[in-house]
């Protein structure tokens, strides 16, 4: 597992990392997730194509944590992400990809993934289907001649 490359399970999984917090949404299950600090670092590094092994060694090198514990924690975190189907193995990935260096502000604590199900009802219905950025909402205007033909 640690030598494998992953990618986010798009298009049903969307994510964004901001201010050290990654928020991940699985539009299929309706669950959304948050992970901060080291977890956000790992998610970003996975998106950059880095393998678990490379991420663990980058973290271990830049942190005070005990290297063996860091490797174990990174592997467990990746397993958890894969278990929720948030990431899938990417056979086209480059196992040599190097993650961005962990910054000095990143204090090592074991990564934690928090899952929330309170918006399941709305996310599973994914109202995005009804929205079009260019043509308006709730649906694009029908082509000329079709307006008013709904019965």
């Amino acid at each position: 597992m640690e030598s494998e490359c992953y990618r986010a399970n798009t298009p049903s999984v969307i994510s964004e990392t901001l201010d050290g917090e990654t928020v991940i949404m699985d539009l299929r299950s309706g669950t959304y997730f948050s992970t901060r600090g080291v977890g956000a670092y790992i998610w970003t590094a996975l998106e950059q194509g880095a393998t678990g092994a490379r991420i663990a060694s980058e973290l271990a090198a830049s942190q005070d944590g005990e290297p063996g514990a860091v490797v174990t924690a990174v592997e467990a975190f990746i397993r958890e992400l894969a278990g929720y189907n948030l990431i899938v193995a990417d056979p086209d990935g480059n196992p040599e990809a190097t993650p961005a260096p962990a910054t000095a502000e990143l204090i090592y604590t074991p990564p934690v993934l928090s899952a929330y199900t309170d918006m399941e009802d709305l996310l599973q219905l994914d109202p995005v289907h009804d929205v079009d950025a260019e043509s308006g909402w709730p649906v694009p205007r029908p082509p000329l001649g079709e307006a008013g033909t709904a019965t």
Binding site: P11, I14, V128, V131, P140
Partner: peptide
Amino acid sequence: VRRDTSLQTDY
């Protein structure tokens, strides 16, 4: 309907 991922970031 287009799936527009830039819209989904609003979620």
